[in-house]
Design a binder for these strands. Structure first.
Lengths: 232, 232
DNA sequence: CGCTCTATTGATAAACCTCAAATACAGTGG
DNA sequence: CCACTGTATTTGAGGTTTATCAATAGAGCG
């Protein structure tokens, strides 16, 4: 019972099922399966046959992709209320990315058939799905533009600010990014190397813009970062 | 009458309206407006209020985006049968990119209301739309990965091969890319500069992999390019 | 033929990566 | 509590890739 309430909460704040009435949500819940993940567990691999889509109910996932040489690129950190693997619903294809938990995480899953039925029953879901994908699409496009036109340090600044907005929580020192975030992660997220990321953050720490520990970052002067990101 | 038949042809081969019956197509056509563009005409600007989506019936469009400093990035060349600006249908937002004709081009347009009605009447359209967007989404993701992990020359090779597949036509010398494609365009498409693009193509021309003239490229040895793209 | 736009090429510099080595940190088991 | 181990981070030196600047050549057009 408690579990169902938890799920309901998540459905309400989720983007896919927005606008559904309570009794409709009940139907949705009955079709979904709950799954708990310890940190650093892979939910699915890029290339796996895509049969299921997932809603993050609690915790956070990291979406990545490897190239042939094994270099990792981070596309997105996905938090509670967000749907992933929408591709599974529509096409008989494979997951284009890998999803891995970065902390203790709970996801709710719907298989292709169930989701299709839900979409047919409640056309709003399809429309919602479409707008979610469009939003993400614009997001990648913007990051693609950044990657083409901005320098590494600007990209790191923009990335930190983005993470701050999506996973930031205010504390006494500044805004803490509530994701275990190593230098390598930042590098993979901005298209640079561990070393350049480290040097950059060190410099910013000396300037007092951030404070950083092992796999954690607090932004102490967001305004300075914003301004820096805008310099040519 | 002739015009309508032309439109019908395009609808049939298009991705959005796939699976519709003839009488349904008629309804779709009545909702659409035909528009002819000379080369280098801007159909819409990034930031314009998005009220209309377009299907390319003939010719080709270039989708680009500028950053604040005015650097241009090319996202896509869009050919006949392809839909653009789907975002216009769903959200009260602005076009995220600029669309410009690169040759004589004919587009069919539907405004937000009409498209919404069509989607409600024929739910297949929504589903098709969703799969189109998903495909493009994966495409940007792949290019994003490339940009992060591959060197300029590899990216140029991959880009030429991609263009070859989507706009290539075989002639006596090899496979001609049927888009006016200057060095600057290639640079904007691969995230490099005019100069690097020029040097690279010059080198390949000496090796006999391509032949190039003013704003045009023929790939004479695709296999060599493929192999080169795969080298580390 | 002169004009404009595009492409080539060399020289130079900047940005960034790579490698190597040292240091800091968190967790573990004695 | 402390040494130990494995991982994360820092930092320097040096090299590679790529951008930038400048000057020239070529192609198409009226």
């Amino acid at each position: 019972m408690d579990k169902n309430i938890a799920i309901l909460d998540s459905l309400h704040k989720s983007d896919v099922f927005a606008g559904l009435k309570t009794e409709q949500n009940d139907v949705v819940i009955k079709g979904g399966l709950c799954k708990k993940l310890q940190p650093k567990i892979i939910l699915f691999h890029q290339g796996d046959s895509a049969q299921t889509c997932y809603l993050v109910n609690r915790g956070r996932l990291k979406l990545t992709k490897l190239n042939e040489q094994g270099k990792e690129v981070i596309f997105r950190y996905v938090g509670a209320g967000e749907l992933i693997a929408a591709v599974a619903v529509l096409k008989n294809s494979n997951y284009p990315v890998t999803a891995e938990s970065v902390e203790e995480t709970e996801v709710i899953s719907w298989d292709k058939q169930t989701m299709m039925q839900l979409m047919r029953r409640y056309p709003d879901i399809t429309i919602n799905l479409l707008s979610i994908i469009l939003e993400r699409f614009e997001d990648v496009q913007n990051r693609y533009l950044e990657l083409c036109t901005e320098r590494v340090e600007q990209r790191i600044a923009l990335t930190l600010l983005r993470l701050m907005r999506s996973a930031g929580s205010k504390n006494s020192e500044g805004i803490y990014i509530d994701i275990p975030l190593g230098r390598q992660n930042i590098a993979d997220y901005t298209g640079t190397t561990l070393y350049t990321a480290s040097r950059t953050l060190s410099a910013w720490e000396k300037k007092g813009w951030i404070k950083s520990g092992r796999e954690q970052i607090v932004i102490t002067d967001p305004h300075a970062l914003v301004q820096f990101a805008e310099t040519i």
